[in-house]
């Protein structure tokens, strides 16, 4: 790979932050649980990007390894979350997250 111009890390971090904030915005705004999960995925990808950028900065594989763990976590989380979504849909017949607010005082 030719490297005439390398990418400044700041910019990549900026992108990561932007993605994270966008994901957060999505979590706060949407009421449909599927969209909330999608937003969470976006946030996770943002942090993964940050890790990869850090690994590229130092030229070490640790960043990619963290990315793989994030991947594993995301996979497990999605599996269970979608199971919960199915239960929610069956019990409440809706995907509105505010329907499942019985754990209050």
């Amino acid at each position: 790979m030719g490297n005439a111009m390398t990418i400044p890390v700041d910019l990549v971090m900026l992108l990561a932050i932007a993605l994270f904030v966008i994901g957060l915005f999505g979590v706060l705004t949407r009421r449909n649980i599927i969209f909330i999960l999608i937003s969470i995925e976006v946030m996770m990808n943002a942090s993964a990007l940050a890790f990869i950028a850090a690994g590229a900065r130092w030229g070490q594989p640790d960043g990619q390894i963290m990315f793989m763990f994030i991947l594993a976590i995301a996979a497990a989380e999605v599996a269970i979350a979608l199971g919960l979504v199915i239960q929610l849909a069956r019990r409440f017949n809706t995907l509105d997250i505010d329907a499942a607010s019985e754990l209050n005082d």
Binding site: M1, T6, L14, V21, W58, G59, G63
Partner: peptide, 27 residues
């Protein structure tokens, strides 16, 4: 509003630290 605030703070955090470039080498 909340997202904007958070974005601003994190940007400041990023630009406070010394800037550097990626190495460009492939791992």
């Amino acid at each position: 509003v909340l997202s904007a605030i958070l974005f601003a703070i994190l940007c400041v955090a990023i630009y406070d630290s010394p800037s550097s470039d990626t190495t460009g080498t492939m791992v």
